[in-house]
Design a protein around this nucleic acid. Structure first.
Length: 944
RNA sequence: GCUCAAGUGGCGGAAUUGGUAGACGCGCUGGAUUCAAAAUCCAGUUUCUUCGGAAGUGUGGGUUCGAUUCCCACCUUGAGUACCA
C-alpha cells in the first residue's frame, strides 16, 4: 500500500534527477550551427564565480531567461542560450595573496561549485559553448581586440574608427592639417615634411595621441589599500566599490581607451535599442552631454589665453571674474609675485584634501586671487582671475567664466570674496540669490540688450566666432577609460617596450599567457605583481616569452607589467558564444552573420555605467572596423531586481553577555549582532540551543525572555551576503521542494524588475499547486488521461490560459502566469477534466516554467521526444466567446438598454465585436454612440 | 539639489492599460480527516454597517458618463547622479 502511494505521488527528486540526466545525455539543448529555423539569442550576464556560491537571488534572472529561451524554442526558433564565467577578478587574487593558492585553482573550484548549483535548477543552457574570460583560448582574442584598438584612430569626418595606417598615409601626404580626428592634441600642427623628419620616437609619441588604445600620463583614482587604480564607475561616494577604501588622485602612465570618441554615438544609439528607460537615463547622465560654447579670454600682460566652456554664452556680459581649477596649467604662469605665496598655500591645502573630503564639504567656499587679469572679449575690461576648488580640473577646460548673477556657485563665491555682482537680467531681483531661469530679457549687455535666452545664445556665439574668441562646443562628462590595473589575475597586455615605446606582439603569437609568480602582491619598488615574474621578457627573434635576465633591449625587451581591467573580457563575450571554439578568428563571419546580436539580454541594472557602456563601445568599434555586422550588441535588455535577505539581529545589553528579547529592548542600551537566520522561525523567535552552540562565548550567555517565554529577534531587509548570515542557498530549496517549485516560486514572488525580500513561507503554495497539477494527470491507479472529447468549459479554461501565458511571457510578467496556471488547474480539477486534448497542451504551456514535471508527464502520456521541441499550443478565440443574442446594458446607473445583435453574426464576428478595445456603433436606441465597452452579459459603458 | 520610478488588505502582489478594484498565493479564522501532529480537502477573510447598504487604491484638486490608471499641486519611499560651469 505504502509502496503504491510512493509510486503514484509527485516524487520531484527522482523526476528532476532523471530528466536532468536525460537532457545531458541526449544533448537536448545543443544549439545547431546550421538551421533553417529563425534564430533567437537569449543571454544572461555571465557570473563572476565567487567562493560563496549562488544564493537564491542569483538565479532569478537565469530562470526568467530560461523560461523565455524554452518558450522561443517551443515557438520554433533556433535558440542560442549559452552560459559562461567572468572568471578574472579581485576576490580570487586576494585569496591568493592570503593563502598563496594560484587564482586559477580557486577559480576552477568555484566554477565547479557554480556549475553543480546551476545544474540542479534545470536550465536549458548549451554548455558546449561555455566560455571563461580567464582561459587563454578566450583571452587570446581579448588581447587581439586590444591590438585592433591600438591600431585604430577615430576619424570624425567619416564618424568611425579607421586603421592607423590610413592616418600615417595622411601624415605623409599632408601632415595633420586636414585630419579631423579625436585626439589629445589639437593645437600642434605639423606638415608632411615635419612628419617625415620626426625621429621614430617622436612619430610614435604623436600616434599615441590618436590611437583608441593609448598610453598617457593621466590623473588616476589610486586606491593605496588595493594597490591599484580604479575606473570612475568602480568608485562610489569617493571610496572603492570593493572594500570601501579611500581613493586619492595621482598621476601615472596608464593604458586608456578613447571611449570619448564614441560619446555621441553611444548616446544616439540608445534610441534604437529596447532597454529600460532607467538604464538609458543613467547612461545619458553618465555621458553627460551639454551644448554650449568655448570662449577664449586673453590674459593681460601674458602671451596666453584661457579657454572656458560655458552653457550660457548669453551671459557673457555678466562676467565679473574668472575661476581656474587649482590644478590648471596656467596658474603657475600667471600668478603675480605678490599673490604667489597665498596661491601656493591654497594649492597645497586643496591637494591634501582627499576626494571624499572635497565632496562632503561642498558648502565651504574657498579660493584665492592670482593677481592676474583677463581681458573681456567684447568690453576689453580687465577681469580678475581667481582659483577655487569648486572648479573641477577634470570637467570642461578646468576654467570657468564666472557669472554671479546667473549661477549660484559663482554667486556664492562672489558674495564671499566681495566681488561685484553685475545684474544683466531686466526686472529680476538678485539680491538674495542668482537667477538661473531661462525666461528673461537681457540688459546692460551691449548688442544683446532686449534679447531673450535663445536669441542671446545664438547672437553671442556668432559674435565670438566673428572676432575669433570662441566657437560652438558640445561637452561631455564622459572620461576616457583607464585600462591598466596593477593586478595579477587579469589579461596580460600583448605589449613589450622598446626604448619606452610600446610595441604590439603580433597576433600570430597570441595568447600571451600569464606568467607564474611566487607572490601576488606588488613588488618592493611598487611595480605590479607581474614585476615578480622571472620569465617576463619578449624575445623578438623567436617571438616567445623568455627569462627577464636576457633583456638586452636589442632583441629581448621587457613586457608590460599591468593587466587589463575586469570589463575587458566581458565587453565582447556575447560574440564569442556564437563561435566559441574558433581558433582562427574571435568568431567566423558566417556565424556572426547568422546570430547577429543578442535578442534578449538579462542582468542586473548595477552594470549600467560599467559593463553595459564598455560593451557597447567595443561593439561599435568592432563594427566600424568591419569585424561585426551590427553596432549594438543587445537588442532588448531586461533588468531583474535584487532578491534581498531578511537579516536577523539579537540585542545584547551593552557591555554584558546578556541577550534580550527584541520586544523587551525599549529603554535599554543595547547593541545588535547579526545571527544566522537558520536559528529563526517564521515568528521571529530564536532557537536558543542553536545560538548557544554557534560560538563559544554565547554558551555561557544569559537571556531575558519575552512574556510568552520565547526569545524574539529584530528583522531587517538587507542585501544577501555571507557576512550578514542571511543567505538562502537554492540547493536547500531545490532539495526540499524541487527545482520546479523553486523556479515557479521565484517567478511568483513579484515583478521581475523589482527588488523584493526573500521569504520561504509562500513556497508551500506553489509546491501544493504542483502536487495538485500532478494529480490532474496521475491517480492512484496510474495515468488518468483519456481520449474523451473536452467539454466547452475546459476548452475555455485552456484557451484563456494560453492567451494569458503567451501575453505574459512576451511582456516579461512571469509572476501572473503562475497565477493563471493555478487557476487553470483548480478549474480543471473541479471539472474532473481528463481529456488529453486539454491536458497535453497544458503541459507544453507550462513546460518553460516547470520543465521537469512537464517532461515527466509528457512521457507518461506516451510521447517519445522531449517536450522542449514540441510546438507551443495556439490560442483560439472562439472558445472564449459565449454566443447570446441579447445583452442587457446598464448605463449611468439609471437607464437600461437592451442591445440586439444580428442573429446572422458568426461567432468570430461577435467575438471580435465583444473583445475589441473600443467598438464603434453608430446607433443605439436612436442615439449616436461613440464608444461602447461591454463584457458578455454585463454592459459596462456607452459613450454618446 | 537634479533626474527617474513607485505608493492598492495583516503580507507578496493582480486589474485585459480609462470600464465589475483586491485575481493568485501566504497568513489568519472555522470545519472535515487523524489517538495526535504533519500533510490534504472544504468554507470564510478590504473596512464600517442599523445587514438595506456605505466608504475605499498616499493627500488635495481637475478632466470624464466612468479614474488604481490621464492632468496639476503636495506628502512619503526607493534608485541613479552630484560643485558638470
Amino acid at each position: 500500500m505504502l509502496n503504491k502511494v510512493l509510486v503514484m505521488d509527485y516524487n520531484f527528486r527522482e523526476i528532476e534527477e532523471k530528466w536532468q540526466k536525460y537532457w545531458r545525455d541526449n544533448n537536448t539543448f545543443l544549439t545547431p550551427q546550421e538551421s533553417n529555423k529563425p534564430k533567437y539569442y537569449v543571454l544572461d550576464m555571465f557570473p563572476y564565480p565567487s567562493g560563496s556560491g549562488l544564493h537564491v537571488g542569483h538565479p532569478l534572472g537565469y530562470i526568467a531567461s530560461d523560461i523565455y529561451a524554452r518558450y522561443k524554442r517551443n515557438m520554433g526558433y533556433n535558440v542560442l542560450h549559452p552560459q559562461g564565467y567572468d572568471s578574472f577578478g579581485l576576490p580570487a587574487e586576494q585569496y591568493a595573496i592570503q593563502t598563496g593558492q594560484h587564482p586559477a585553482i580557486t577559480t576552477d573550484e568555484n566554477i565547479k561549485n557554480y556549475r553543480s548549483q546551476l545544474d540542479k535548477m534545470g536550465f536549458s543552457y548549451d554548455w558546449t559553448r561555455e566560455v571563461r574570460t580567464s582561459s587563454p583560448d578566450y583571452y587570446k582574442w581579448t588581447q587581439w581586440i586590444f591590438i585592433q584598438l591600438y591600431n585604430s584612430w577615430y576619424d570624425k569626418s567619416a564618424d568611425k574608427a579607421q586603421p592607423i595606417n590610413l592616418l600615417i598615409e595622411q601624415f605623409e601626404i599632408s601632415g595633420n592639417k586636414n585630419i579631423n580626428a579625436f585626439c589629445d592634441l589639437d593645437t600642434i600642427v605639423f606638415s608632411s615634411n615635419d612628419w617625415k623628419n620626426y625621429p621614430k620616437f617622436e612619430k610614435e609619441k604623436i600616434l599615441l595621441k590618436y590611437r583608441l588604445a593609448f598610453l598617457a600620463e593621466t590623473v588616476v583614482n589610486w586606491c593605496p589599500k588595493l594597490g591599484t587604480v580604479l575606473a570612475n564607475d568602480e568608485i562610489i561616494d569617493g571610496v572603492s566599490e570593493r572594500g570601501g577604501y579611500p581613493v586619492i588622485k595621482r598621476e601615472m602612465i596608464q593604458w586608456s581607451m578613447r571611449i570619448t570618441a564614441y560619446a555621441e554615438r553611444l548616446l544616439s544609439g540608445l534610441d534604437k535599442i529596447d532597454w529600460s528607460d532607467a538604464i538609458k537615463e543613467t547612461q545619458r547622465n553618465w555621458i553627460g552631454k551639454s551644448v554650449g560654447a568655448s570662449v577664449f579670454f586673453n590674459v593681460i600682460g601674458h602671451d596666453c589665453k584661457i579657454e572656458v566652456f560655458t552653457t550660457r554664452p548669453d551671459t557673457i556680459f555678466g562676467v565679473s571674474f574668472m575661476t581656474l581649477a587649482p590644478e590648471h596649467e596656467l596658474v603657475n604662469i600667471i600668478t603675480t609675485e605678490i599673490q604667489r605665496k597665498f596661491v601656493d598655500k591654497y594649492i597645497m591645502t586643496t591637494k591634501s584634501r582627499s576626494e571624499r573630503d572635497r565632496m562632503s564639504d561642498i558648502k565651504t567656499i574657498t579660493g584665492e586671487f592670482t593677481g592676474a587679469y583677463a581681458e573681456h572679449p567684447f568690453t576689453k575690461k580687465p577681469i580678475p582671475i581667481w582659483i577655487g576648488d569648486y572648479v573641477l580640473a577634470g570637467y570642461g577646460t578646468g576654467a570657468v567664466m564666472s557669472v554671479p548673477c546667473g549661477d549660484q556657485r559663482d554667486y556664492d563665491f562672489a558674495k564671499y570674496f566681495k566681488i561685484p555682482i553685475p545684474n544683466i537680467f531686466a526686472e529680476v531681483d538678485i539680491s538674495e540669490k542668482a537667477f538661473t531661469g531661462k525666461t528673461f530679457t537681457i540688459t546692460d549687455s551691449e548688442f544683446l540688450n532686449g534679447s531673450n535666452f535663445n536669441d542671446a545664445f545664438k547672437t553671442s556665439v556668432d559674435k565670438l566666432i566673428k572676432i575669433g574668441h570662441g566657437r560652438e562646443k558640445i561637452n561631455y562628462r564622459l572620461r576616457d577609460a583607464i585600462f591598466s590595473r596593477q593586478r595579477y589575475w587579469g589579461e596580460p597586455f600583448p605589449v613589450y617596450y622598446k626604448n619606452d615605446i610600446p610595441n604590439m606582439i603580433s597576433p600570430k603569437f597570441l595568447p600571451l599567457k600569464l606568467p607564474e609568480v611566487k607572490k601576488y602582491l606588488p613588488t618592493e619598488h611598487g611595480d605590479p605583481p607581474l614585476g615578480r615574474a622571472t620569465s617576463w621578457a619578449w624575445d623578438t627573434n623567436n617571438n616567445s616569452v623568455v627569462c627577464n635576465s636576457k633583456i638586452d633591449n636589442k632583441t629581448v625587451f621587457p613586457l608590460e607589467l599591468n593587466t587589463m581591467p575586469g570589463w575587458a573580457g566581458s565587453s565582447w563575450y556575447f560574440n564569442r558564444f556564437m563561435d566559441p571554439d574558433n581558433e582562427n578568428e574571435f568568431a567566423s563571419n558566417k556565424n556572426l552573420n547568422y546570430w547577429q546580436q543578442v535578442d534578449l539580454y538579462v542582468g542586473g541594472s548595477e552594470h549600467a555605467t560599467g559593463h553595459l557602456l564598455y560593451a557597447r563601445f567595443w561593439q561599435k568599434f568592432l563594427f566600424d572596423r568591419g569585424f561585426l555586422t551590427v553596432d549594438e550588441f543587445a537588442k532588448k535588455l531586461v533588468n531583474q531586481g535584487m532578491i534581498l535577505g531578511k537579516s536577523a539581529y539579537v540585542a545584547r545589553i551593552e557591555g554584558q553577555n546578556t541577550f534580550i528579547s527584541y520586544d523587551k529592548v525599549k529603554g535599554k542600551s543595547v547593541q545588535y549582532i547579526h545571527v544566522d537566520i537558520n536559528f529563526i522561525n517564521s515568528k521571529d523567535q530564536m532557537d536558543l540551543n542553536m545560538f548557544k552552540s554557534w560560538r563559544a562565548e554565547f554558551n555561557s550567555a544569559k537571556f531575558i525572555f519575552s512574556d510568552d517565554g520565547s526569545f524574539k529577534v529584530k528583522r531587517e531587509v538587507e542585501k544577501m551576503s555571507k557576512s550578514k548570515y542571511n543567505v538562502i542557498n537554492p540547493d536547500d530549496i531545490c532539495f526540499k521542494y524541487g527545482a520546479d517549485s523553486f523556479r515557479l516560486y521565484e517567478m511568483f514572488l513579484g515583478p521581475l524588475e523589482q527588488h523584493k525580500p526573500w521569504s520561504t513561507d509562500g513556497i508551500t503554495g506553489v509546491f501544493a499547486f504542483l502536487k495538485k497539477f500532478w494529480k490532474l494527470y496521475v491517480g492512484q491507479s496510474g495515468v488518468k488521461v483519456t481520449a474523451d472529447a473536452p467539454c466547452s468549459q475546459s476548452l475555455k479554461t485552456l484557451h484563456k490560459t494560453i492567451k494569458k501565458v503567451c501575453h505574459d511571457i512576451e511582456g516579461f510578467s512571469f509572476n501572473t502566469s503562475v497565477s493563471s496556471f493555478m487557476i487553470a488547474v483548480n478549474e480543471l480539477t473541479n471539472l474532473n477534466c481528463t481529456s488529453r486534448s486539454i491536458l497535453e497542451p497544458l503541459l507544453v504551456l507550462m513546460s518553460p516554467y516547470a520543465p521537469h514535471i512537464c517532461e515527466e508527464l509528457w512521457h507518461k502520456l506516451g510521447n517519445k521526444e522531449s517536450i522542449s521541441i514540441t510546438k507551443f499550443p495556439v490560442y483560439d478565440p472562439k472558445y472564449l466567446v459565449e454566443i447570446s443574442k441579447t445583452y442587457p446594458i446598464s448605463f449611468n446607473g439609471k437607464t437600461r438598454f437592451t442591445l440586439d445583435l444580428p442573429t446572422n453574426m458568426s461567432a468570430a464576428e461577435i467575438e471580435k465585436l465583444v473583445l475589441s478595445d473600443h467598438r464603434s456603433i453608430t446607433y443605439l436606441n436612436g442615439k449616436i454612440v461613440k464608444k461602447m465597452i461591454f463584457v458578455p452579459g454585463k454592459i459596462v459603458n456607452v459613450v454618446f
